[in-house]
Simulated scan of single mutants.
Amino acid sequence: MAKVYATGRRKTSISKVWLEVGTGELTINGQSLDAWLGGHEAIKKRVMQPLEVTKQETSVNIVVKTLGGGYSAQADAVRHGISRALVAYDEHFRAVLKPYGLLTRDARSVERKKYGRRKARKSGQFSKR
């Protein structure tokens, strides 16, 4: 089977995911998962969740290119991209991934700053006189 491509997004991060039959290698921005994320075990677990749920940890090779945002948002974008790539690879995975919410794009993003405010919602201290 040829390579399968999918895109994952979260906040301002975008991940481009290529999935093919292989031995379970995961390369993110030219690095292994451990080199890319360092000691963030909980975030590594979040990235690997779609593969663990579908039991594909050792049967597919994944190459990811990610950009924008911070490492946590990038990790969630990678998770979304891997989930979508697995569904494109085999449609039966949709029924497995859907209950975990892995196919839903997390639409939360930073609210824009409003004029007259210090931040999006924070205002200056009220003065009665």
Rank of each mutant, 00 (worst) to 15 (best):
Y89G: 04
E57F: 05
G68F: 10
V60Y: 06
T58W: 03
T58I: 06
F93K: 09
G101S: 00
D106M: 02
V96K: 09
I82K: 01
L86P: 08
A73I: 00
G69T: 05
D106N: 03
K98V: 08
E57L: 15
V63G: 10
Q74N: 08
Q56V: 04
A95Y: 14
L86I: 06
G68N: 12
V78H: 03
G68T: 13
P99D: 07
Q74C: 05
A77N: 06
S83Y: 05
H80S: 05
G101W: 04
G81A: 09
L97P: 00
L67F: 11
Y71C: 08
R79N: 01
K65A: 14
T58A: 12
V64H: 09
H80Q: 02
R94G: 01
V63P: 07
S83Q: 05
Y100C: 00
A95N: 15
Y89V: 07
S72W: 13
S59E: 00
T58K: 14
E91Y: 13
L97I: 06
V60E: 07
L103N: 05
G101A: 04
E57I: 01
R79W: 00
T58Q: 07
V87R: 06
R79M: 04
G69I: 05
K98N: 14
Y71E: 04
S59I: 15
S72H: 13
G68M: 10
A75V: 03
A85K: 12
L67K: 13
V60S: 06
E57G: 07
A88D: 08
L103P: 00
G69P: 11
A77Y: 01
Y89K: 08
Y89C: 07
F93C: 02
A75L: 02
S59K: 13
A77E: 00
L102G: 00
N61K: 15
L67V: 13
V78Q: 03
G68H: 03
D90G: 02
L67H: 10
G81N: 08
A88R: 09
T66M: 07
A95S: 15
V78F: 03
H92L: 11
A73E: 06
A95T: 15
I82A: 05
A88M: 12
V64M: 03
D76L: 07
A73Y: 01
H92Q: 13
S59P: 01
H92I: 14
I82E: 07
A73T: 14
R94D: 10
D106L: 00
L102C: 02
G68R: 06
A73M: 07
A85V: 12
S72F: 15
D76Y: 10
G69H: 05
G101V: 00
A95K: 15
S83I: 11
D76V: 03
L86H: 07
R105M: 10
G101L: 01
V87T: 05
